[in-house]
Design a protein around this nucleic acid. Structure first.
Length: 420
RNA sequence: CGCACGUCACAUUAGAGGU
């Protein structure tokens, strides 16, 4: 039984949801009776993916089998809603914990705080933290880490130190993950000097920098235009004990991409392969961008092809980067063609992708495709933004279709998007 | 014999668009 539970968990951890589910079914077929942990694992697998509907039906399955959901089950569901970007529902689910006469513990509170953090709602994250303290539930280092992330995402970088002092007052020792979270908040808020200072403090206090720390520092170096420093850090990581990661390599390549140094990016790419670090879709996208931004269309396209040859499935970001390369290098028709060929594939459009497609339409004065794009967006349930609509109006207008343009203008207004 | 010990929930890092 424990073996099956563990296997399910492993599948879930690497995103292979259907394998996790079939393991559960296999378990039944083998005549084993799933226990509370089995069901919780199943709920947890779906929750981490933000699939709250599936998580809820797993809980229903659990009840039908005669098990009562426990604190772990409910906390998973709080997490499910958090991951789905629905903190209000997470809060409701949190309330269910008490309604079933269970007592939320530190992990439950952390999950709820993180639900608010993920959606950028720092105030509510802090509010829940306050409730947690008033109920005498002890915060731990995960709590502090989550709050730091919340402050960064919500744009309250200046509260970093205040939160760190919360850690001190609860006798929570700083660790690497905590410092990384603080560094992220500081760097995200542009407080580069403070970030440097914190890094010095880390070293002084013997808190080891890990691969995540290096990613942050490499990124920061890129942001202050110091690619030499970024490379130095990268070399340090390659040589050091922390271990090289794809994230670090991708970050390094991205620094060069943004600096317009594709050959240096290529060198990093070669080096990572030599060191046995496998490039992923992010790595390839950054490399592609490096070439595309420099006007090297052929090279960019060949990076894309290499990626596919390597058996890596391009995602929506990779496709968008390729489209943008076409657009920037005088081939908007290829961008449109690419988008058209995607209609049969398993990629879901997002707003960025649609904007890039619109940019192509605009260059081609292709108002029909532009309107189609808008329709596809609606069908996909994406909300129309002002930027999107402005772009669209311009394309149609510039194509000389005043009637269609006006029609759209009023249609959008009716949809509830007030003209600015 | 006792004790300890295995499976479930929470946090930090990389890529694309700008009227």
């Amino acid at each position: 039984l424990i073996t099956f539970n563990t296997v399910m968990h492993i599948y879930g951890a690497c995103g292979r949801l259907s394998d996790a589910k079939s393991t559960f079914e296999l378990m039944l077929a083998e005549g084993l009776v799933p226990d509370v942990v089995s069901y919780n694992t199943l709920v947890g697998v779906y929750s981490s993916a933000g699939l709250y509907k599936e998580a809820e039906s797993a809980m229903t399955l659990m009840k039908e089998a005669g098990h009562r959901p426990n604190l772990v089950t409910y906390t998973s569901l709080v997490n499910a809603y958090g991951k789905a970007g629905q903190p209000e529902k997470a809060e409701v689910m949190f309330g269910m914990i008490q309604r079933h006469s269970l007592k939320p513990n530190t992990v439950s509170y952390n999950a709820l705080i993180n639900a608010y953090s993920s959606s950028g709602n720092f105030d509510d994250a802090m509010r829940v933290y306050g409730v947690m303290k008033s109920k005498r539930v002890c915060p731990n280092s995960v709590t502090i880490c989550t709050l730091l992330t919340a402050s960064g995402k919500g744009g309250y970088m200046e509260r970093t130190y205040e939160i760190l002092s919360e850690a001190a007052s609860h006798n929570i020792k700083l660790n690497t993950a905590l410092c990384n979270a603080a560094l992220t908040a500081l760097i995200g808020g542009g407080a580069y000097d403070s970030a440097d200072k914190l890094f010095v403090t880390m070293q002084r206090d013997g808190i080891l920098a890990d691969a995540v720390t290096y990613v942050l520092l490499i990124k920061k170096a890129g942001m202050v235009d110091d690619h030499m420093q970024a490379q130095k850090l990268f070399d340090e990581l390659c040589a050091g004990a922390a271990g090289l990661t794809v994230e670090a390599c991708s970050a390094m390549i991205d620094v060069y991409a943004k600096k317009g140094m594709p050959s240096e990016a290529q060198v990093v790419y070669e080096k990572m392969k030599m060191l046995g670090c496998r490039p992923n879709v992010v790595t390839f996208t950054s490399l592609l961008y490096a070439y595309g931004a420099k006007g090297l269309l052929k090279e960019a396209v060949s990076v894309f092809e290499d990626m596919v040859t390597e058996g890596i499935v391009p995602d929506i970001v990779a496709y968008t980067a390729l489209m943008s390369t076409f657009n920037r290098n005088g081939h908007p028709e290829k961008a449109v063609e690419l988008a058209t060929s995607l209609q049969h594939k398993e990629v879901s459009y997002n707003e960025v992708f649609c904007m890039e497609l619109l940019a192509a339409c605009s260059k081609l004065m292709d108002w029909r495709t532009a309107l189609d794009t808008f329709q596809i967006m609606q069908d996909a349930g994406l909300v129309a933004t002002h930027r999107m609509v402005h772009h669209l109006l311009l394309v149609i207008g510039k194509s000389g279709r005043v009637e269609e343009m006006l029609k759209l203008f009023f249609k959008v207004k009716e949809m509830g998007l007030e003209p600015t």
